[in-house]
Structure formats: structure tokens, C-alpha cells
């Protein structure tokens, strides 16, 4: 009894020291970065804003995140929400297209032969190249930004889904065959559960890239959005705002990635 308590204590201690250790490393890395930032700011005679100026601007921005004083004066929260809305729309539509296509591609040689060459050619193209096409097709900068995000979200999901389906073990297929599963049962009880972790991996990659691309796309589209905010702040020569935006973009991207990562661990299984 005593011994097991001791052991428990020891493990708890290990976990605690591990966590504190990680936190100390984090602090160390951060201070290192801040120092370099501060030095580079000093060495440019303040032309590049340092951490202190930036954080005071950052604080101003996030303390009044929501206001709307016309097209060129909106709160950072409004900008962020409008970017998130576009990414969400584009990502959802892109995924709705990519997942079924991936399932078809992975499950049939015909599907693979038909789709794969197209995917291989289109995938390396920067999604921004589709922006003008979107403009012509939809006559709207906003829609065409969503369109760019749709294209962005296609490829990782499509490829991971197809890979997942094509690696379903023969054993699982044999079960479905031996017990006469209908196509519907095969898809819902074998194909999707097996492929789900792969699909989630694809979604995680897609949303990560989509969040990177939205910034660039909004610089092109203008109007509103965190990307537009970066560009607008640059035009207003407020590098403090640019830095603040970078920080916010990074944090949001981090949270997005973490949430998909937790989905990933939740839906992974081992046989």
C-alpha cells in the first residue's frame, strides 16, 4: 500500500516536473526571441517596432476588438471573424467535395485512373492562381476568396482520404464479404471507420493551409479580413499592427491545428 502510494507520488512528480520543464523551455525560447527582436529593433533605430511598442498596440487592438466605423476602419475581431467565416465556408465546401471524391478514388481503379492525373497536375498550383478565375466566375471578391479556399482545402483531404481507402486491410474486406455486408453497410461499417483517421489528417492539413492562404487571398481581395488588415496596416505604415496581426494569425492557426489534432487522437483506434 505504502509502496504503491510512493510509486504514484513518484509518477505524479515526474509528470509535474515534465510539465514545468516544458514550460521553462517555452519561457526560455520566448525570451530569446523577444531579445533578438528587441535588438533588431534597436539596430534599425526603431524603424522596425520592438516588442514593447508592438505589445502596447496589440493591447489596444484586442481591448476593443469589435467596432465598425466604415469600410477601412473595423475592429480586429471583425476582421478575424470575417476571415474565419470565409475559411469555414471554403473549408466545408471543399471537404464536402474532397471526401466523396477521395472515397471514389481510393476504392476503384477506374476512379483512381480518372482522377489521379488531374489531381497531380492541379495540386502543385498555388491556390491564389484561381483568384482571377473566381472573380470572373462569381463577379465578387468575397466569393472568389471563398473559392480560393475551396480549392486549397481540396487536395490534402482528397489525397489522404484516397490513401486511407486504398489501404483498407484485406482482413476487413474479407469480413464484409464473408458476412454479406451490403454496399451501404460496407461503406458505413468498414470503409468510413477505417478511413476516418486518414480523413481527419487530411482535414487538419487542409485547414492549416487554408488559414495560410486566406491571408494572401485577402491581400488580393481587399475589403475586410485579417489578410486585408495586414496589408492595410502596411499601407498605413503601422508595422506594430502588422506584427500584432502576425501574432493573432499564429495563435488562431495554432488553436485550429490543436482542435483538429484532438479530433485525430479521439478518432484513432488500434486493432
Amino acid at each position: 500500500m505504502d509502496k504503491s502510494n510512493q510509486q504514484l507520488g513518484a509518477t505524479a512528480l515526474k509528470v509535474v516536473t515534465y510539465r514545468t520543464g516544458r514550460f521553462l523551455y517555452f519561457l526560455l525560447g520566448m525570451s530569446f526571441m523577444l531579445i533578438i527582436w528587441h535588438i533588431s529593433s534597436l539596430s534599425t533605430d526603431g524603424e522596425l517596432p520592438g516588442p514593447i511598442q508592438t505589445f502596447s498596440v496589440f493591447y489596444d487592438l484586442v481591448s476593443h476588438p469589435f467596432f465598425d466605423y466604415g469600410p477601412n476602419d473595423k475592429g480586429i475581431g471583425n476582421q478575424l471573424l470575417s476571415s474565419l467565416e470565409r475559411v469555414t465556408k471554403g473549408f466545408i465546401i471543399g471537404s464536402i467535395i474532397a471526401i466523396p471524391l477521395g472515397l471514389i478514388m481510393g476504392s476503384s481503379t477506374l476512379g483512381m485512373n480518372l482522377l489521379n492525373p488531374m489531381v497531380q497536375v492541379l495540386r502543385p498550383v498555388s491556390p491564389l492562381a484561381w483568384f482571377p478565375i473566381g472573380l470572373v466566375a462569381f463577379q465578387s471578391a468575397h466569393t472568389s476568396t471563398v473559392f480560393v479556399i475551396i480549392i486549397t482545402s481540396l487536395w490534402p483531404t482528397l489525397i489522404n482520404t484516397a490513401f486511407g481507402v486504398s489501404t483498407i486491410p484485406q482482413d476487413h474486406k474479407n469480413v464484409a464479404k464473408a458476412f454479406g455486408f451490403s454496399t451501404f453497410k460496407y461503406i458505413t461499417k468498414v470503409m468510413l471507420p477505417y478511413t476516418l483517421p486518414h480523413i481527419i489528417t487530411g482535414l487538419r492539413l487542409s485547414v492549416g493551409i487554408a488559414w495560410m492562404v486566406i491571408v494572401a487571398a485577402e491581400m488580393l481581395s481587399g475589403g475586410v479580413g485579417i489578410g486585408f488588415f495586414v496589408w492595410d496596416s502596411w499601407n498605413a505604415l503601422s508595422l506594430e499592427k502588422v506584427f500584432s496581426a502576425i501574432l493573432i494569425i499564429g495563435l488562431v492557426g495554432f488553436v485550429l491545428d490543436k482542435s483538429f489534432k484532438s479530433l485525430q487522437t479521439r478518432y484513432s483506434y488500434d486493432s
Binding site: 482482413d171 476487413h172 474479407n174 469480413v175 464473408a178 461499417k189 468498414v190 471507420p193 477505417y194 483506434y269 488500434d270 486493432s271
Partner: peptide, 12 residues
Amino acid sequence: IVFQNYSLLPWL
């Protein structure tokens, strides 16, 4: 059929 390696579906 009872497969040699049981072949249960791991998510069920």
C-alpha cells in the same frame, strides 16, 4: 467462417 486471425472490426 471463423478466420484464423479472428478478423473482428476494431471500431465495433
